[in-house]
Design a protein around this nucleic acid. Structure first.
Lengths: 128, 128
DNA sequence: CTGAATCCCCACGGATACTG
DNA sequence: CAGTATCCGTGGGGATTCAG
């Protein structure tokens, strides 16, 4: 399928592995990435240690890894101040800022419908 | 619904592990779940084999697993027709349908900004 | 303080074989 | 046709240690 026929009524082409939507989900589907975006979006520029303390439960390894990925994707700017000790600030780029409404939209759906999901789960588990 | 009453200035409380937004991302962050939602949203009810052929690259194990999860979450209805051979149809629930605009919103951002991400990546990798 | 490097576990997910 | 069961490799991700 997919490879030959070009009849996609609604304009969704997400079935091809490398479509943009797929890659976006790969990015914000990352737990720490989305949390970092929200944190930086709310509080503005933050130091590494500030991010670490705000995003509870994140390991140093994963936080650094996520921040590097975001920097590479142009979502944030990393500024190193070569003082002693070193100070590193992270700040969302204009591009990174445009993700806030997207995440807000997700949040909106979640707050509106997640109770239904919970109810469905309870009912489902009760049947089983 | 947040965990407690509003304590986060901008209304984001995603830092608590079990917040609704987090759980939504856990759901649609699943590659096959989102693809199945899109497929069912476009084509309407589909049989198992139809889903399998439309969502290219999915293994039978993962497809079944994802569909079960979605059924449990009340996102789709699974109808088994005990004929020979068996026939199983999957159809989005009204709740599942409400996810389509959300995914569409993701798609919109992706198509609008993913080129910037690619450019940023190229620049970043070139510097390294 | 910020981060790189290492060890290590185990959950995710593919391949295969079997069943109603 | 639509699964379930099993094996198994790979990689995500936590804990720890070292470095600038």
């Amino acid at each position: 399928m997919g490879t030959t026929t070009a009849e996609r009524p609604s304009g969704f082409d997400a079935f091809t592995a490398m479509c943009p939507s797929r890659r976006l989900l790969d990015t914000i589907g990352d737990k720490w990435v989305s949390l970092a975006i929200v944190a930086l979006g709310i509080r503005g520029p933050l130091r590494y240690s500030e991010l670490a303390s705000q995003i509870e439960g994140v390991s140093q390894k994963m936080l650094t890894q996520s921040l590097r990925k975001m920097e590479r994707d142009g979502l944030l700017i990393r500024t190193v101040t070569p003082s002693v000790p070193v100070r590193t600030d992270y700040e969302l780029t204009p591009l990174g800022l445009t993700l806030l409404p997207v995440i807000a939209h997700l949040k909106e759906w979640a707050e509106e419908h997640m109770a239904d999901v919970d109810a469905a789960r309870t009912a489902y588990d009760a049947r089983a």
